[in-house]
Design a protein around this nucleic acid. Structure first.
Lengths: 168, 168
DNA sequence: CTCCTATGTTGACAGTGTCAAGTAGTGGTG
DNA sequence: CACCACTACTTGACACTGTCAACATAGGAG
C-alpha cells in the first residue's frame, strides 16, 4: 500500500515488495498466490477505502439530493487523490470480469448499494438511474485523475450533471 | 494492433512484437524509442479510430440532441468492442499527464471539439456541460468494458442520463 | 517428544527491457 | 566510379522479473 502511493500497480514488483519488507525475494509467495494475488489485495483494500469515503460523504449530507452529489464528489476526490489505488480497483487484469472474485464482489456490491440507496432516495430509477450516476462520477474521476481537467472542474461538472439528472 | 485485439497493452512485450514481425528482438528499437514509444503509437491509432467512430455517429444523427446521444453511444460501444485499445488510450503511464505528447494531443482536442460542438448545439454549456457528457460516457464505457453491466444497460443509462442533462 | 504448519531461505530458469557494437543494402555526392 | 552517410537489422550481453523446487526453522497441537 505504501508503494502504491508512489507508483502504479503495474510498476510494483513482487521482489520490490520483498525488499521493502526486508525479506527474501520469495517470501511473498507464502502470503500471495501470485503477483495477481498481491494486486487483488491492494485492490480490495483500496476499494474498502473508497467505499468508506463515499459512505461518509453520503451520511454527512443533509437531504437526499445533496447525498448523491456529495457521494459522487467523494468518489471523484478519491480517484484524484489516490490515482494508483483507484486504477487497481478497476484493473481488468486484476479482477477478471467473469470471475466471482470472492472478496472483491461484496465490496462492489456495497458500493452499488450505497449509490443505489442514495439515488433512489433522490428520486432516480433503481436500475438505469444508478448506473448513470456511477458511470458519471467514475468517468469524471478517471479522466480527472489522468489530468484531462482539474478537480474543481470535475466536481463542478459532476454537481451540475447530477442536478440535471435528478428529478425536480 | 493485432496483438492489442487479443491482450491488454500491459501484456504485450517488445520481443513478442518482434517475433510476430519475424525480426530480431531488437529491431523494434529502430522504429520506437522505447516500450512506451510503441504503446504511444498504439494509443494514437486507437484514439484515431475512436474519434472516427464518434464523428460518424454524430454526423449520422438527425437533430442535435440525437447527435449527442448517438455520439455517446458510439464512444461506449468502442470501449466495449475494443477494450484493450480503449484502455491504452487513457493509460496514464503511456501518455504522461503533464507532457504535451505532440501527437496524441491533437486527437484529444479533436474528440473534445467533437463532443463540444454537439453538446453546445444541443443547448449545453461549453465548459462544464461538455465535461459532464465526456465523463458520463467515459465512465459507462469503462465500467461496461470491465464487465460491471451489459452494453444494453450502459447504452440505456447513457441515453437516459443525457436526455435528462440536455435542456428542454 | 514428535510432528505439522507457517514462514522463511537459497538456487535456478525462462522471459523481458535495454544498451553496445557490428553488418547489409541504399541513396546521393564528390 | 569511389565514398559516405543512413536506415534497417543483427548478435551479444546485462540486470531485473515472475515463478518453481528444495531446503531450513520455529512454535504450537497432539
Amino acid at each position: 500500500m505504501q508503494l502504491l502511493v508512489e507508483k502504479p500497480a503495474g510498476e510494483i514488483s513482487l521482489r520490490e515488495v520483498a525488499r521493502a519488507a526486508d525479506v527474501s525475494h520469495n517470501a511473498p509467495y507464502h502470503h500471495f498466490s501470485d503477483r495477481r494475488g498481491l494486486l487483488k489485495v491492494l485492490a480490495e483494500r483500496s476499494m474498502a477505502d473508497l467505499v468508506a469515503a463515499v459512505r461518509e460523504a453520503i451520511e454527512g449530507a443533509g437531504d437526499p439530493r445533496a447525498a448523491v452529489i456529495e457521494g459522487g464528489g467523494a468518489y471523484i476526490r478519491y480517484a484524484v487523490e489516490h490515482p494508483h489505488g483507484f486504477d487497481v480497483i478497476y484493473d481488468p487484469t486484476v479482477c477478471i470480469p467473469g470471475e466471482p472474485s470472492e472478496t472483491m464482489a461484496p465490496l462492489i456490491d456495497e458500493l452499488e448499494e450505497l449509490l443505489s440507496e442514495a439515488s433512489v432516495a433522490a428520486g432516480l430509477d433503481g436500475g438505469t438511474g444508478v448506473i448513470g450516476v456511477w458511470g458519471l462520477v467514475h468517468g469524471l474521476g478517471t479522466l480527472c485523475a489522468a489530468g484531462h481537467f482539474t478537480l474543481d472542474a470535475a466536481l463542478a461538472a459532476s454537481a451540475d450533471a447530477l442536478t440535471r439528472m435528478l428529478p425536480r
